[in-house]
Design a protein around this nucleic acid. Structure first.
Lengths: 190, 190
DNA sequence: TCATGATACTCAAGAATCTGACTATTCATA
DNA sequence: TATGAATAGTCAGATTCTTGAGTATCATGA
């Protein structure tokens, strides 16, 4: 029961449909929570059944109709309880690190390629986050916004995503460089 | 089928029992993979049944007997295939970030406390990683070790863990400071 | 005009994960 | 000398997550 709270937190700022929510989990919220669309639809249904979110049908002419969900007072109370409860340590699962861990005993070629790919991805994400931050603080300088802005939560988590991606980017570049040098040395050594 | 590869990677350097493996997943490997002991015991059983690891009973006098596992050639071949296959994007799930996301609408007191706790945890982990790095490079300076060392995989993932925890630490401290200032302002504003 | 791709969802089945309890022995410590 | 922590696991059941396939409409571009 933890996806529930991630969904509630994601719905705090705007009413979203399941489809939009899925997109936001693939971009913004994905910094700190991962879920597939199917899970989100299912979770929204459960949340609605429990009265933590309220859905309303929006009829569209040019596209299929959709249901928009917003957090209810009960939902907010649930988030309040969650925030006060003890947090589980953050959980990370990273395929690429598993490959790096075994990199002395397997062919490093594909691992280096994947590190470079991941670095590109991180660069794209960083750019996206930087734009999002500018948008969220709406003209104000950061310090002023963080002191006086009404809604800073998403900004703060976006800062977290930025820190994470910048760290990951540096790591990828450094490790790719090291593995490349080492595989070069090995060639010459033969 | 992804925990398998994390387990194989963790067993590359030493023969471990399920119990020891569980410990290492709680400390070192936990940088990039999370799993509970029960899962590890089950996965070891499956890996052994598939011939990817080999277990041997070690009789102990002063403690309960244990079974040590090592990676077989087949296991290594499986890791090789895994390293060459495309990686899934790293998956993060972070309770604390969910709480920060909703921090404008819930009581920030407990969130700030949790950020400080997490910061302490990160500091402890950083110290641990730094010691581990010194141990892994065994007297040599980093550059030399990374160029000429025979087994650098665990060192590289440890570097990753360090980058991650340092980033997380900075984020926690900064966010805790911001939320504290804001809650102070609010008090005075009443 | 025909094929994508985007919007907006749904369903079922199976794999993976988590919760919680249990067994048994030894070591340290209060 | 009891008490709790550490070693070394096992088991069942519930929940969660992932895989894979479908439905239907509209817009865009080749």
């Amino acid at each position: 029961m933890a996806l529930r709270h991630a969904v509630l937190a994601a719905l705090l700022d705007e009413e979203l449909s399941g489809y939009q929510l899925a997109k936001s989990f693939d971009l913004g919220v994905a910094n700190f929570w991962h879920a597939l669309p199917q899970q989100l639809y299912a979770e929204l249904a459960r949340l609605e059944a429990d009265g933590l979110v309220a859905g309303r049908e929006v009829v569209q002419e040019t596209r299929p109709n959709k249901r928009l969900f917003k957090v209810t007072d009960e939902g907010l109370a649930e988030l309040e309880r969650f925030a006060a409860s003890s947090a589980k340590p953050s959980m990370l699962r990273d395929d690429l690190a598993v490959k790096v861990q075994s990199s002395d005993l397997v062919d490093t070629g594909p691992v280096i390629a994947q590190l470079r790919e991941r670095a590109d991805f991180a660069r794209a994400k960083i750019e996206l986050f930087e734009k999002l931050l500018v948008k969220l603080r709406g003209g104000r300088v950061e310090e002023e916004f963080l002191r006086e802005g009404e809604r800073v939560g998403p900004y703060l988590t976006c800062l977290g995503g930025l820190v994470f991606e910048r760290g990951y980017l540096q790591w990828c570049e450094r490790i790719a460089g090291i593995l490349e040098t080492r595989s070069g040395e090995k060639e010459r050594g033969r």
